[in-house]
Design a protein around this nucleic acid. Sequence first.
DNA 1: TCAAAAGTGTTTCAGATACACCCATGT
DNA 2: ACATGGGTGTATCTGAAACACTTTTGA
Lengths: 244, 244
Amino acid sequence: MKQISPYISVDCVLFGYNGSDLEVLIVDRTLTDEKSGQVLIDDRTLTGNHVYEDETIEDAAYRVLYELTGLDNVFLEQFKTFAHPDRLKKPNDQLWLKRTGREADARIVTIGFYSLVATDKVKLEWKGRNVRWIPVSEVGNLAFDHNLILNEALKTLQTRIKYEPITFELLPDKFTLTQLQNVYEAIWGIELDKRNFRKKVARMKYLIQLDEKQTGVAHKPARLYVFSRDVYDKTKKELFDFTV
Amino acid sequence: MKQISPYISVDCVLFGYNGSDLEVLIVDRTLTDEKSGQVLIDDRTLTGNHVYEDETIEDAAYRVLYELTGLDNVFLEQFKTFAHPDRLKKPNDQLWLKRTGREADARIVTIGFYSLVATDKVKLEWKGRNVRWIPVSEVGNLAFDHNLILNEALKTLQTRIKYEPITFELLPDKFTLTQLQNVYEAIWGIELDKRNFRKKVARMKYLIQLDEKQTGVAHKPARLYVFSRDVYDKTKKELFDFTV
DNA sequence: TCAAAAGTGTTTCAGATACACCCATGT
DNA sequence: ACATGGGTGTATCTGAAACACTTTTGA
């Protein structure tokens, strides 16, 4: 059995998109007293993971993703590390650590990763716990410092999509321009003009229009597009202008 | 005495500007065999630090900066965490850890911070070791994974200055527009057009023109400017447009 | 035939780029 | 007087923003 690095963990913020809202994958955390049957803890967390001694943190994060989605080519990026001495010191968190056989006093550094996945690819069970997609705006209180981690991940995502084409990771392989626009709108929480949006993406050579249309929709069917990483890598240029 | 967190460290990439090059603060690492007098190690590192058990990583990073500069209001930002299992496993690094009384087998996570300082504010000695500013392009091989850390810090800096006005942190409080332009050129390694640069900064209301000029220069003296954080905070706006 | 979303063009304005000369100072 | 860097304006082009109607499909 592999040895676990006891002071390092990774937390993964999995973002998904349900057609109208930006969602995040949340896991239920419940703890019931064995004797009395009393519910001691009933709240929620992000998906986290320990790290093995001989494993990189990236591999540890990919392990969570693989367990949740069965996919191994998912967008994943480190965004910030959380190491506050008191980050695991709330009463519920201490109780949880003790009851699940962890060292409750240890200072654990967690490296935050965020990930973009098509929501339908996720199983609804993980390590025996319930897993749910929840719109980011309805998440409420999370355990540990997971609200902080989620907020930082969201800020990173909002910024990153301004400069890098990663939004299609939230969509099926073939998608419409309206879906793509909706993703930007969901992440930024604003509305964009359809015509201007389309003029903008028309300049993005790595969005390839297919000879294919939606089917089974009760309106004019939209054209389908795919993202071409190949074209993107060949045409992307460094941006040396500055805006602020 | 405070207890040290044995598995967490911070590494600080201090960037400076000498009037023509972007520089980074580098510390000599020398180890001499006590009996033979033979030089066992003679190379260079970034400035790093341990973290105390009850201390945040930000505070630990500020401690390095304070020791080096005597300043406590320096620009500092976390940019990436380095945790590869083999990051301290090179022979010289193992030798160094053992001879300086550290646990050579332990996996140590280091959180990378970068910082922008006016170079003249730095003392030239730190923990009994020689400290030097070296142009980023001339750094050469560093100990541990410090070349990797430096490269990531530089990439972060190059990107960050596109969107946030932090470059003046590398200059004296009062600076000329040419100095400011030179900083951008040094960080990006490209040349910018003087007139276009000035038109651009003219739109930045937080650059305040003083009723003051350079003195003692053998040419038309330049006007001096200061950065106003106050104006910046009041006028900065969220950027929701996207460019890629 | 109606409901629903797809798809399209023009005008106006702001900012990006390219480019060359005179000015103020110290030596 | 000369060397040095400071400081300025215009023309062109590209992209951002604002804005409304026709088209195609399934029900």
